[in-house]
């Protein structure tokens, strides 16, 4: 088994694992971080498929901007529920 094949298998396993963990995680913050991890692994997968253009777009939009949006939404949700508890 060559090193490239081992890396690809590891990458595929990591993709499936992070996707499943992100969907099944009970904690929202953990799910969001795993979603970002999934995006970054997907970037590597696109690079391995020699499609660096899509990899760049995935890293910037998929992992970066979407991740930031989700984290911001999480913060807003948390602030909202904190305010309700305090009321």
């Amino acid at each position: 088994m060559s090193a490239a094949l081992a890396f690809d298998l590891l990458l595929a396993a990591g993709l499936l694992w992070s996707a499943w963990q992100s969907l099944s995680s009970a904690r929202l913050d953990r799910a969001i971080l795993l979603f970002i991890t999934f995006g970054l692994l997907l970037t590597l997968a696109w690079a391995r498929l020699s499609a660096p253009d899509i990899g760049l777009a995935e890293a910037a939009i998929g992992a970066g901007l979407t991740g930031a949006l989700l984290l911001d939404a999480y913060r807003a949700l948390k602030q909202g529920s904190d305010a309700q508890v305090n009321r």
Binding site: P52, D53, L56, A57, A60, I61, G64, L65
Partner: peptide
């Protein structure tokens, strides 16, 4: 590889 979409993001 590069271009407007990547630069914009």
């Amino acid at each position: 590889p590069g271009g407007a979409f990547q630069a914009g993001s």
